[in-house]
Structures are given as structure tokens and as C-alpha cells.
Design a binder for these strands. Structure first.
Lengths: 200, 200
DNA sequence: CCTACCGATCGGTAGG
DNA sequence: CCTACCGATCGGTAGG
């Protein structure tokens, strides 16, 4: 028989939160904001719907956390990949960033797909935290594209905004067609980076 | 005072259907399948919700028609652009196709955005008609990409499926960031086609 | 974390 | 195209 400590309680609470978010992410990915109901989420977790309110203040709060986590997973993976390839050839850094984006996108598929799918929130506008998290990730690519254009690995005469929107749209669009049995992420990353930045 | 003929009746019915679809498309674009309610659609049109069932059998039927029309608008525009540039330089045909896709995408923004947003239908799976309409449009690009790879306007060593998914994802992703006051469609079409098929 | 409950709203139908 | 209505389900709350 064990005596619960403050730390145990915190860990259990964190675990419950994560469990709820995992199921919420899956249901949001499959059905979007309005189809993912609190009843379904609670049932998947194995608790009553009202008990969700012990962990979260509202449905919006659950959705907001899922959506932001989805972006953060990708953001952190790309930042890590860029850190690991610091000083490497520009084309190699581009391929590493694309690879990290795709790997995180499909490695946390429920969160990231939910994040892409749910850009309309319940009633009001998109929460400020969601916009901030997305902007922060875009800034990583803003920086990388500037670096690559300066190094000549991406054509300097292309508009950076168009380039970034084009590439991120193409990568995120893979949630619609990527199937692990049909494509390999490293092959896709190579295809895409060589398409944008051909070896001469 | 006029006497209604059979033709008038048909025209009026068609007009009502279109009016309903126009408002449905706008609401689907903004809220997705479950947030676009029959009550809102009916109110926007200026009729009672039950009267929608005089024109359509179900909500699914309305959504299906909006979604398919969205793809068809783009499909027809691209086919027309390719017909107009028959025999022209490959790179010119690519730019024309991209331009037509973007122009139709944003010229019928409610339908096409709804089409991209609503890929999860109410209860059951995506209707077969929807999958068929989408596949038919993809085939246009399958053909064009094969033609361009053969002509050397797109790198022959790139996988055609990856190329097509990448490009269509990037173009359709523009529904998330395109604003008429920030971008020009002809400039974007040029940026994108030159990115994929640089002039040598 | 639970039982019990709330008003609001959903898509759809009956019958004209 | 209408009025009137249906059962089902929604997010959320009271009170423990």
C-alpha cells in the first residue's frame, strides 16, 4: 500500500491530461472540432464526460492544447535538425529540415493532423496562443529560407514569402496523401529538397 | 402578368438550388461539415429549414454537391488553359495550368475552400462521387507531369507521384494564406512554375 | 473523479 | 414552399 505524495499526484494529473489529449487529438483528426465530442473523448479515456472538467476548463482549452502541441512537435524537431547540421552544406540543411518536418508530422500524426484540420475554432476567433505558436514556427523557416537564398541553394530571385508558403503547404498537404506503406519519408525529403535545390 | 411555363419552373428550381449551394459553400468554408447547419443555410437563403428538403434529400447531398462543384471549377479551368496552350512551350503550359488552378481556386473561393476543408463527411465514408471527381482532376495533372518530364521541363528523375502531390498540396494550401491584397495570382503562378522549372 | 441534470440545438419528418 | 413537431445529442453545471 502506497501513500500518495504531492509529486505522485502531479505525475498522475499530468498523465491523465496527456491521455485525454491523445484521444482528443485522434478524434479531432478524424472529425474536426464539432464532431469530436466531449462524450467520445471521455469514453475513449474511460471516464465520464463531466470528469473532463476536472482537468480542463472547456472543450476549447482541450482543442487549443492539442493544436499547439501539434505545431510544437514539428517546430522542435526542425530546430533540432538545424542544430545538428549547423555548418553543413546549405542543401543538406534544407533536406534535414524537410525530413524533420515530415518525420514529426507523421510521427505525431494525430496531433499534427488535428492541428492542420482545426483552424476554425468553436465560436470565437482562433486563440492568440495558437496564432503565436504558428508564427513562431514560420519564423524558423523564414530564417532558413533567407540563409539558403543568400547561399545560393535556393534561387535568390524568388519571393521568400511565396517560397515559404509554397513549401510549407506542400509539406503539410502530405497529411492528405502520405501512407507509410506507399512512401518513405527519407525518400520524400530527398525528392522535395532536390526539386527545390537541384544538385548542379 | 406572366404565366409560368415548364421551362420557367425548371429555371427557378435551378436558381434556388444554386442559391442554396452558394450559401452552403460559404458556411462550409467557414465552419466545416458539422458547423454549417441547415438552419443557417436556410436563414441565409431566406427560407425555412424544412424547405431545403424540397430541393435536396439530405444535408449530405448538399455538401456533396458543393464539394464536387469546387473540384469541377478548378478541373475545367485547368483543362481549358491546357487546350489554349496546346503546342506551346512546356514551361508555358505549366505556368498556364498553375495559373488556372490558382485563379479558379480563389475565383470560386467558397466552393473550393469548402471542398478542401470538408474531406470528412457526416457519418459514413467519403461518397464515391467525391472520390471519383477528385481522381479525375488528379489525372489531368498525372498527364501533364508525364508530358513535362518527357519534355525535360520537369526533372525526369523525380518521382511523378511525389511531384504531383507536392505541387497540388502547395497550390491548395494557398487557401490558408492567399489574400488578394497581398499577392497577385499571375505573380504567384510565375514564381511557382519557375521554381519547379527554372529557365536555363 | 462521480450521478444527475440543464437549456440549446441538431437533422429530419408529417402533413399540408 | 410552410407550420409544427420529433428524438437525439451537444457543451456545460450543480453538488457531492
Amino acid at each position: 500500500m502506497s501513500i500518495a505524495t504531492a509529486k505522485d499526484t502531479r505525475d498522475t494529473e499530468r498523465g491523465s491530461r496527456r491521455l485525454i489529449l491523445d484521444h482528443a487529438a485522434r478524434l479531432l483528426r478524424n472529425g474536426g472540432y464539432h464532431r469530436a465530442t466531449l462524450r467520445e473523448i471521455a469514453e475513449a479515456v474511460g471516464i465520464r464526460k463531466a470528469s473532463l472538467y476536472y482537468h480542463f476548463a472547456s472543450k476549447e482549452e482541450i482543442v487549443e492544447e492539442v493544436v499547439n502541441d501539434g505545431v510544437r512537435f514539428v517546430h522542435e524537431a526542425v530546430v533540432a535538425a538545424l542544430a545538428e547540421t549547423e555548418g553543413a552544406a546549405p542543401r543538406e540543411r534544407l533536406e534535414a529540415a524537410i525530413h524533420a518536418h515530415l518525420a514529426a508530422l507523421h510521427g505525431h500524426g494525430d496531433y499534427t493532423s488535428a492541428s492542420i484540420k482545426v483552424f476554425t475554432f468553436g465560436a470565437g476567433p482562433v486563440p492568440e496562443s495558437v496564432r503565436a505558436v504558428r508564427r513562431a514556427y514560420e519564423d524558423v523557416w523564414r530564417g532558413l529560407i533567407a540563409e539558403l537564398q543568400q547561399a545560393g541553394a535556393l534561387p535568390a530571385e524568388r519571393a521568400p514569402d511565396a517560397l515559404r508558403n509554397f513549401l510549407l503547404g506542400a509539406l503539410n498537404g502530405s497529411t492528405d496523401w502520405y501512407r507509410p506503406e506507399r512512401f518513405r519519408i527519407d525518400a520524400l525529403a530527398r525528392e522535395f529538397s532536390e526539386l527545390l535545390s537541384p544538385a548542379r
